[in-house]
Amino acid sequence: MSTTPSKPMAALWMAGWLSLMLVMAVAGREATRELNVFELMEVRSLLGFLLLYPLIHRSGGFSALGTSRLPQHIARNLIHYGAQLGWFFALTLIPIGQVVAIEFTMPIWTAILAASFLGEHLTLGKLTAIVLGIIGVAIIVRPATGEINPGQLIALGAAVGFGVSMALVKSLTRTESALAIIFWMLVVQSTAGLLPTLYTWTWPSAYGWGLMVVIAICGTYSHYCLANAMRYADATVVVPMDFLRVPLTATAGWLLYAERLDAFTVLGAGLILTGNLLNLKASEAAASRSALKRPADQPVKL
């Protein structure tokens, strides 16, 4: 089904994405005050099945979700599970704005891995994003000072894990539907987290249950908003809107937790986001040149 391009509609869907991601970051910070991360992740995955079931039913039931690439699903989702654990744990150690700033290095690791294992080319735009991203991380973490916060390293490890996961998703999308990828993500992650959750389980309060429901809803439907934004506008329009997550989460951290971002974090985040933006612009220009070189369609032979 084709969709008429509309930047206002894309912006509206991105507002939903940004709002849900912001709420999830704050709810994650609050939930980890009471609950361990394994428990939080397990309940989120189980609730995800309930949220996903209407889409599964509409697509023809579970028979449409069979796969011949189960080992790839398992590998991808174990890595993604570890990255999510790290992301939620980092929220308890460093300002939420800093977690999100470091998270935006994910495209760097995705580009490197896609070039190494999927045969994609490292263009000038991608190389620029990689260089600026690495410099940005170095400015935020500042290893030369000898005062590296473990939370920064955990957030960086989570970003690398998300990058590996994204590269594996790009491979899976060649044969698997988006619904199947999400379904097997829930299966693998709920299975992986079952024993640690049972071992560390503490019964949540009503407030804790409410936070986990909020996290599950935000984590599921935020991606629905993002997918719809992509239907109404190109990535070069949509992705820069996502950069607003850095100042928005930093503002939320300041208002709710009196967290302040230092000048180094602001500068590092700026370099990371600039690199991503330049890569998007370069990719758009390359796509335009490719379209201009494409020969005109041949007349249909009857």
Rank of each mutant, 00 (worst) to 15 (best):
S6G: 12
K7N: 14
A10M: 07
W13F: 15
W13M: 14
W17I: 00
L20F: 14
L22E: 07
V23I: 14
A25H: 10
A27M: 03
G28T: 08
G28D: 09
R29I: 15
E30G: 00
E34R: 06
N36W: 03
E42M: 10
V43P: 00
R44C: 04
F49A: 00
F49I: 05
L50R: 05
L50K: 06
L52H: 04
P54V: 13
I56K: 03
G60Q: 10
L65D: 02
G66I: 09
G66D: 07
S68E: 13
S68R: 14
L70F: 12
I74F: 08
A83R: 07
G86H: 06
F89V: 12
F89Y: 15
L91C: 05
P95A: 08
V99R: 03
V100W: 01
I102W: 01
P107S: 09
P107E: 11
I112P: 00
A115C: 08
L118I: 11
L118K: 04
G119L: 11
H121Q: 14
T123C: 03
K126A: 06
T128M: 09
I130A: 06
I130N: 02
I130F: 02
I134D: 04
G136L: 07
I139H: 11
I140M: 13
I140Q: 08
V141M: 06
T145A: 11
E147D: 13
N149E: 05
V160W: 04
G161D: 12
G163S: 07
G163K: 02
S165E: 15
S165Q: 15
S165A: 15
L168G: 08
S171H: 12
L172Q: 08
L172N: 06
R174N: 08
T175S: 15
T175M: 10
T175L: 09
T175Y: 09
V187A: 01
V188C: 06
V188A: 03
Y199I: 11
W201V: 01
W201K: 01
T202I: 11
A206Y: 12
M212E: 02
M212A: 02
V214R: 00
I217Y: 07
C218T: 10
T220W: 00
C225P: 10
N228K: 08
P240D: 13
F243H: 12
F243V: 02
R245Q: 08
T249K: 04
A250S: 11
W254N: 02
W254M: 07
E259V: 13
E259H: 12
L261E: 03
L261P: 08
T265C: 15
T265I: 15
G268F: 03
I272T: 10
T274Y: 06
L278K: 04
K281G: 01
A282V: 02
S290K: 02
K293R: 15
Q298T: 13
V300N: 12
V300E: 11
K301A: 13
